[in-house]
Design a binder for these strands. Structure first.
Lengths: 124, 124
DNA sequence: TGCAGTACTTACCTGAGGGATAGTGTAGGG
DNA sequence: CCCTACACTATCCCTCAGGTAAGTACTGCA
């Protein structure tokens, strides 16, 4: 009954997997700006292969986070847009970004300190 | 200057990778309950191998999200605890869980609908 | 003498995710 | 007449993340 993150089929775990997928997050972030076409997304999200882009888009569509609109013209034209659900998820991603901006200095300081002590040990 | 999620070395991107790592999140969630020892974490987080647990713990420690306290006794005893920074990150994870609980029905409905239409096409 | 308990580390190996590349269908334009 | 644009789809291939298993160091207890 209660959410159990330790089980793979738990809702919270599934969301975790989605948030964990870099391409999915990148698509959501890009679509938060507005409607985009397939090639626009491909150009915007540098480094994504057509295979992964399609795969990601399908997954997002399946989960009701984005809509896919096919215009029956030649050459084909397909528009992708965030749904209301997608926008609410984007709000969370924004929260992550805010946290990152606020605490990144702490994290980097911690990393530097940690690396320094490790270096000291291995140098000995 | 401004955060660019599309670049791999951007702060927001690094946080994304951390949140994306299932074991990291699971450790943070478990430690949010209180201090735990190594074997306690191993038992609690079902399915994690000692290798991955150590690796995850090291990464979290490096980023200043958890503390690692070694007690020089025999047999050895090592305590792990969330730092203040770790707790603030946990707040975000809690937000994700809340979202999941609230919207999981919408997602599952969307999935069912999507699968139904796909099935209809492939059956044709 | 040797085994148990703790917290790892190291070496080796495999499967699956994802990159690269090529193919598909349509029609307007040069 | 064929090339291009668009949005995929299919295929092969290869890397590498992560699992398994075994090793390490230390000491008290039977």
């Amino acid at each position: 009954m209660q959410p159990n993150v330790y089980e793979a089929n738990c809702p919270s775990r599934q969301l975790l997997d989605r948030i964990g997928d870099t391409w999915s997050v990148l698509v959501v972030v890009t679509l938060a700006e507005g409607i985009h076409r397939y090639t626009e997304l491909a150009k915007r999200i540098e480094g994504v292969s057509p295979k992964m882009l399609t795969q990601t888009l399908r997954g997002l569509e399946r989960d009701g986070l984005i809509t896919r609109t096919v215009h029956p013209v030649v050459p084909p034209r397909v528009d992708y847009a965030l749904t209301e659900l997608g926008h609410s998820l984007y709000a969370l991603v924004e929260g992550l970004e805010k946290w990152a901006e606020t605490h990144i200095e702490d994290v980097q300081a911690a990393r530097a300190a940690y690396d320094a002590t490790v270096q000291a040990y291995s140098a000995k």
